[in-house]
């Protein structure tokens, strides 16, 4: 008799556990795992005739034999890494200032100022950059008015424009984890660093950065993945020939209706991002669980 209420409670507890888990399991399996399994299957077949498919690696060999695909792939990876690094370099001082120099109301205000641009859709924000940088844009106009140039300058549709757009879009995703980790750094540790004879550079290098490493890595992972998978910003700011890998995927799926090739590219992009994140963690000796906690 005494065992029964206990076991009933346990069954109830189990039921509750599965009910609470159900949405995330459904979400992951239906929207993430299932499509990827399908994508792997699609990427591994070749159309031999109308509605006739055969198992084949041809989509992958196509990628490695066609220099355009290969180059775009490497270019996207390198640009993403550079964009992540630059975002970190710009965001770190900003985050340090917010987390350790300011306090109270100004701190909140500055943090919210970093957040405000993200209330506007990415499309509108990118359009903002276009207004500034295009041939008839504000910067071009200002340069002409100042007499520095004698004809309109086109500042869109190049790599710098893409980079500016990517960094701008990624900023918040770097600032938030950095501010959070830097906030948890005891100010007396910084003071102790100075007290024991360290210069600002040493304090930064031996105390602040090691402490902020999990935040730096989680920010970098998020920014890198967002950048690598970004479609809008490279297309709008870089133009049609911006050679971003997501554009290749789009072209395969939508323009050429070659789902097999597109799926193969998608899988390759996933492998690439996983590999680079794994490498980054290995190099900085961080564990994924610690970075993401």
């Amino acid at each position: 008799m005494s065992a029964e209420p206990g076991s009933l409670k346990r069954t109830q507890y189990r039921l509750g556990f599965w009910l609470l888990l159900a949405p995330i399991v459904l979400w992951l399996s239906l929207l993430i795992i299932l499509p990827h399994i399908d994508m792997v299957l699609v990427s591994l077949r070749e159309r031999v005739a109308s509605r006739q498919y055969e198992f084949s690696f041809s989509n992958y060999t196509e990628f490695f034999t066609e220099p355009l695909y290969w180059n775009t792939f490497v270019r996207t990876a390198v640009m993403s890494i550079v964009a992540t690094a630059l975002t970190l370099i710009i965001a770190f001082p900003v985050s340090f200032y917010i987390a350790k120099v300011l306090s109270g109301k100004p701190k909140m205000a500055l943090f919210i100022l970093c957040l405000i641009p993200f209330w506007v859709s990415e499309l509108v924000r990118t359009y903002g950059w276009m207004i500034l940088l295009r041939e008839t844009g504000l910067v071009s106009g200002a340069l002409q008015w100042l007499g520095l140039v004698d004809q309109p300058v086109e500042m869109l549709y190049n790599d710098v424009a893409i980079m500016v757009g990517l960094i701008y879009t990624s900023m918040l995703f770097m600032v938030v984890p950095l501010v959070t980790t830097l906030d948890s750094l005891d100010k007396s540790l910084i003071e102790a660093g100075y007290d024991l004879g360290g210069s600002s550079w040493h304090v930064m290098k031996s105390i602040v950065i090691p402490h902020a490493m999990p935040g730096i890595m989680s920010g970098c992972i998020v920014v890198f993945m967002l950048t690598l998978g970004n479609y809008l910003t490279p297309t709008l700011l870089g133009g049609k020939d911006s050679l971003w890998f997501t554009e290749q995927i789009y072209t395969q799926f939508i323009t050429r209706f070659n789902w097999e090739q597109g799926a193969a590219f998608g899988i390759l992009l996933l492998v690439l991002s996983s590999l680079i994140v794994w490498l980054g963690l290995k190099i900085t000796k961080q564990s994924f669980t610690r970075v993401m906690s």
């Binding site: 005891d186 660093g193 100075y194 105390i207």
Partner: peptide
């Protein structure tokens, strides 16, 4: 003289040992 150049050292209230070292 800035703190890092003064010939004094401080034991902080919460010690401030560097946890990463």
């Amino acid at each position: 003289t800035p703190p890092n150049k003064r010939p004094v050292n401080m034991v902080f209230q919460h010690l401030a040992l560097f946890p990463t070292m």
